[in-house]
């Protein structure tokens, strides 16, 4: 069972759309209502970062199964300016944009696994996973 959805992120209406898609995929996997909200919130932060810092990018949502475990993987990818100091970007309240600086650290807390790779001038890729408990 691997269902994959790829969504281009260019504007704030794409943020709403990607949340709806993720809810539908996560619901199929059997996530609880509160987990659906946590996933949609994390996704909202990641998608908004793309629009705000890189103007455009994409989000790939996939259902995964590892033995008895089922989960949802979010990959958020852009070719924007990249993050110079990932450690600082992961601190609460640190922002170079107009946000509250809670997006990345917040999204990490809402998900079970979170990896970030970024190269200045080349872009950022974030992979976040939530498992059905």
């Amino acid at each position: 069972m691997t269902d994959v959805v790829q969504i281009a992120i260019r504007s704030d209406s794409d943020i709403v759309m990607v949340r709806q898609q993720a809810r539908a995929l996560a619901k199929e996997l059997g996530f609880s209502a509160s987990d659906l909200t946590l996933i949609a919130t994390a996704l909202s932060e990641l998608a908004r970062n793309i629009v705000e810092y890189a103007q455009q990018g994409e989000i790939i949502l996939s259902q995964i199964k590892q033995g008895e475990l089922r989960g949802l993987v979010i990959v958020a990818r852009d070719s924007g300016p990249g993050i110079a100091d990932i450690e600082r970007a992961m601190l609460d309240g640190y922002s170079t944009g107009k946000g509250l600086g809670l997006g990345l650290p917040g999204a990490k807390r809402l998900m079970d696994e979170f990896e970030i790779t970024s190269c200045v001038g080349q872009g950022t890729t974030i992979k976040a996973t939530k498992w059905v408990h």
């Binding site: 509160s34 509250l100 917040g106 807390r109 809402l110």
Partner: peptide, 17 residues
């Protein structure tokens, strides 16, 4: 504010905001 929304807000540190 629904329970699951409240929980997500606390995790994000948004309750303080």
């Amino acid at each position: 504010i629904r329970p699951e929304i409240a929980f997500a807000m606390v995790q994000l540190g948004l309750d303080v905001r």
